[in-house]
Protein backbone atom coordinates (compact mmCIF):
# COMPACT_ATOMS: atom_id res chain seq x y z
CA UNK A 1 0.00 0.00 0.00
CA UNK A 2 1.35 3.40 -0.88
CA UNK A 3 2.53 5.11 2.24
CA UNK A 4 5.00 7.94 2.66
CA UNK A 5 7.06 7.67 5.76
CA UNK A 6 9.05 10.61 7.12
CA UNK A 7 12.79 10.14 6.82
CA UNK A 8 15.12 12.20 8.98
CA UNK A 9 18.87 12.54 8.93
CA UNK A 10 20.26 13.34 12.37
CA UNK A 11 23.79 14.57 12.50
CA UNK A 12 26.33 16.38 14.59
CA UNK A 13 28.35 18.83 12.51
CA UNK A 14 31.72 20.05 13.71
CA UNK A 15 34.16 18.60 16.17
CA UNK A 16 31.96 18.46 19.23
CA UNK A 17 31.18 14.94 20.38
CA UNK A 18 28.48 15.61 22.96
CA UNK A 19 25.92 13.34 21.40
CA UNK A 20 23.60 12.69 24.33
CA UNK A 21 20.87 14.88 22.90
CA UNK A 22 21.24 13.57 19.36
CA UNK A 23 21.07 9.98 20.51
CA UNK A 24 18.04 10.55 22.69
CA UNK A 25 16.36 12.25 19.73
CA UNK A 26 17.25 9.40 17.38
CA UNK A 27 15.42 6.95 19.62
CA UNK A 28 12.56 9.32 20.17
CA UNK A 29 12.02 9.82 16.42
CA UNK A 30 12.17 6.10 15.83
CA UNK A 31 9.52 5.64 18.49
CA UNK A 32 7.44 8.31 16.77
CA UNK A 33 7.42 6.16 13.64
CA UNK A 34 10.01 8.04 11.59
CA UNK A 35 12.89 6.46 9.75
CA UNK A 36 16.00 7.97 11.29
CA UNK A 37 19.39 7.91 9.67
CA UNK A 38 21.92 8.70 12.34
CA UNK A 39 25.39 9.69 11.20
CA UNK A 40 27.02 10.29 14.58
CA UNK A 41 29.37 13.10 15.35
CA UNK A 42 32.32 14.93 13.77
CA UNK A 43 30.62 15.55 10.42
CA UNK A 44 31.52 18.24 7.96
CA UNK A 45 28.67 20.16 6.32
CA UNK A 46 29.73 18.59 3.02
CA UNK A 47 29.31 15.07 4.39
CA UNK A 48 25.93 15.93 5.86
CA UNK A 49 24.59 17.44 2.65
CA UNK A 50 25.80 14.49 0.59
CA UNK A 51 24.24 12.02 3.02
CA UNK A 52 20.93 13.88 3.07
CA UNK A 53 20.69 13.65 -0.70
CA UNK A 54 21.71 10.00 -0.92
CA UNK A 55 19.19 9.12 1.74
CA UNK A 56 16.39 11.23 0.23
CA UNK A 57 15.34 12.55 3.61
CA UNK A 58 12.58 15.05 4.34
CA UNK A 59 14.37 16.60 7.30
CA UNK A 60 17.95 17.20 8.37
CA UNK A 61 18.35 17.66 12.11
CA UNK A 62 21.61 19.21 13.27
CA UNK A 63 22.88 19.25 16.82
CA UNK A 64 25.78 21.41 17.90
CA UNK A 65 26.91 22.39 21.36
CA UNK A 66 30.26 23.88 20.50
CA UNK A 67 29.16 27.35 19.54
CA UNK A 68 30.11 26.75 15.92
CA UNK A 69 26.46 26.62 14.80
CA UNK A 70 26.71 30.09 13.25
CA UNK A 71 29.02 28.73 10.60
CA UNK A 72 27.99 25.08 10.40
CA UNK A 73 24.17 25.26 10.22
CA UNK A 74 23.91 27.79 7.37
CA UNK A 75 26.66 25.95 5.53
CA UNK A 76 24.52 22.78 5.39
CA UNK A 77 21.56 24.77 4.06
CA UNK A 78 23.79 26.41 1.46
CA UNK A 79 25.24 23.12 0.24
CA UNK A 80 21.80 21.50 -0.05
CA UNK A 81 20.61 24.45 -2.06
CA UNK A 82 23.60 24.18 -4.36
CA UNK A 83 22.57 20.60 -5.08
CA UNK A 84 18.99 21.65 -5.77
CA UNK A 85 17.84 20.02 -2.57
CA UNK A 86 16.46 23.06 -0.81
CA UNK A 87 13.15 21.25 -0.37
CA UNK A 88 14.79 19.41 2.54
CA UNK A 89 13.82 21.00 5.85
CA UNK A 90 16.82 21.82 8.01
CA UNK A 91 16.35 22.19 11.76
CA UNK A 92 18.89 22.66 14.51
CA UNK A 93 19.39 22.28 18.21
CA UNK A 94 21.94 22.98 20.87
CA UNK A 95 23.26 25.88 22.87
CA UNK A 96 22.05 28.68 20.63
CA UNK A 97 21.92 32.15 22.15
CA UNK A 98 18.83 34.23 21.46
CA UNK A 99 20.71 36.71 19.30
CA UNK A 100 21.89 33.96 16.94
CA UNK A 101 18.34 32.77 16.26
CA UNK A 102 17.20 35.33 13.73
CA UNK A 103 20.36 35.12 11.62
CA UNK A 104 19.98 31.35 11.52
CA UNK A 105 16.33 31.57 10.50
CA UNK A 106 17.35 34.10 7.87
CA UNK A 107 19.93 31.62 6.62
CA UNK A 108 17.21 29.05 6.03
CA UNK A 109 16.91 27.05 9.24
CA UNK A 110 13.25 26.17 9.75
CA UNK A 111 13.26 25.55 13.49
CA UNK A 112 15.69 25.78 16.39
CA UNK A 113 15.47 23.92 19.66
CA UNK A 114 17.38 24.77 22.82
CA UNK A 115 18.02 22.77 26.01
CA UNK A 116 14.84 21.89 27.81
CA UNK A 117 12.76 21.33 24.67
CA UNK A 118 10.36 18.45 25.21
CA UNK A 119 10.73 15.42 22.97
CA UNK A 120 7.03 15.52 22.18
CA UNK A 121 7.29 19.10 21.02
CA UNK A 122 9.93 18.14 18.47
CA UNK A 123 7.88 15.26 17.13
CA UNK A 124 4.86 17.50 17.00
CA UNK A 125 6.78 20.18 15.13
CA UNK A 126 7.80 17.69 12.51
CA UNK A 127 4.35 16.18 12.19
CA UNK A 128 2.86 19.64 11.76
CA UNK A 129 5.45 21.23 9.53
CA UNK A 130 6.86 18.45 7.43
CA UNK A 131 4.90 16.64 4.81
CA UNK A 132 6.79 13.80 3.28
CA UNK A 133 7.43 14.64 -0.31
CA UNK A 134 4.75 13.77 -2.83
Amino acid sequence: MAERRIRILLSKPGLDGHDRGAKVLARCFRDAGFEVIYTGCHQTPEQIAAAAIQEDVDVVGLSCLSGAHKYLFPQVVKLLKAEGADDITVIGGGIIPEQDMQPLYDAGLKALFTPGAKLDSLVEWINTNVTPRA
Binding site: G14, L15, D16, H42, T44, S66, G67, A68, Y71
Partner: peptide, 22 residues
Protein backbone atom coordinates in the same frame (compact mmCIF):
# COMPACT_ATOMS: atom_id res chain seq x y z
CA UNK B 1 38.83 24.76 21.80
CA UNK B 2 37.58 21.85 19.73
CA UNK B 3 40.29 21.85 17.06
CA UNK B 4 42.94 21.62 19.79
CA UNK B 5 40.97 18.95 21.65
CA UNK B 6 40.65 16.86 18.50
CA UNK B 7 44.22 17.33 17.33
CA UNK B 8 43.62 19.75 14.46
CA UNK B 9 45.23 23.10 13.82
CA UNK B 10 43.17 26.19 13.22
CA UNK B 11 44.00 26.04 9.51
CA UNK B 12 42.45 22.57 9.05
CA UNK B 13 39.21 22.52 7.03
CA UNK B 14 37.70 20.54 9.90
CA UNK B 15 38.33 23.44 12.27
CA UNK B 16 36.19 25.96 10.40
CA UNK B 17 33.93 27.93 12.70
CA UNK B 18 35.28 26.32 15.87
CA UNK B 19 38.35 28.39 16.70
CA UNK B 20 38.36 29.64 20.29
CA UNK B 21 34.65 28.88 20.73
CA UNK B 22 34.66 26.54 23.73
Amino acid sequence: DFPTLMGYDTDSPKARGECGKV
